[in-house]
Amino acid sequence: MGRHRPHTAQPVREPILGTTPRGGSAETQRKAQGPGGHPPLVRVRGLHFARGDRVIFDGIDLDIPRGQVTAVMGPSGTGKTTLLKLISGQLRPDAGTIEVDGQNVHALSRGDLYRLRTRMGMLFQSGALLTDINVFDNVAYPLREHTRLPESMIRKLVLMKLEAVGLRGARDLMPSELSGGMARRVALARAVALDPMMIMYDEPFTGQDPISLGVLVTLIRQLNDASRLTSIVVSHDVAETAGIADRIYLIANGQVMAQGNPKQVEASGSGWVHQFMHGEADGPVHFHYPAPELAQDFLG
């Protein structure tokens, strides 16, 4: 199955940081320069974002190091997908900066933003394949859109990408004929069609059967290591994500609750982090939605 493949090829390079329940920015600032002196690929500073009255991010600092798989985890509704949309410039933060490869995403012109996006891939939860064209054309789409390659060349590239996700034989199928897992693999082939520097995965494991789950976990790791990509995985599937991530950020209530490599996060002393990582029903987050005492409710 290979879904808990140990990642010995990627030794833990980061020093232990432990948990920073209030998103300690001074600490994060200090390690902004990555291990080998390389600046991180994505650098988020003081991010604030609110939807209406609901505050989603309340001052978040993140660093996504190059060449690694970084997981962003947290309960449903903490804005993990929103974070990806902010990084890719589809949403605009209320305050704070997001730099990708040294460029401030939200200060770029439209043309520059689009140019930057050709170097980012994103795997959507639903795959987001264009439903009116077949698998081959879907993967070829970004190539035809952004390159002037001859059709024979595009064909070879597309077949290569499809081979990498194991779906070369499915090239004539329409997206509606694919299972959920296959659609995500095709979308993955499309996301890497332009050989981007990073890929963002939005909940890649949700709603997958164990086999396609294993396939996806393996693929994410392989793609990351084989093409020196940087990967950001947004998920709340603890076991699968912790199995492939080099670094984990735990986000809740608009704050970074914990960060570090999987072992560090798991061993963290915080009760909340422990409850989340081990999927316990009761803990700091109560099983019961806030309510008056049961006896009182019955009598009243």
Partner: peptide, 18 residues
């Protein structure tokens, strides 16, 4: 509307296609 609901529009935007 379905293209929006199934994230196809976001997908296009992420492929740097307006």
């Amino acid at each position: 509307g379905l293209m929006k609901a199934t994230e196809q529009l976001s997908g296009l935007e992420m492929m740097a296609v307006d």
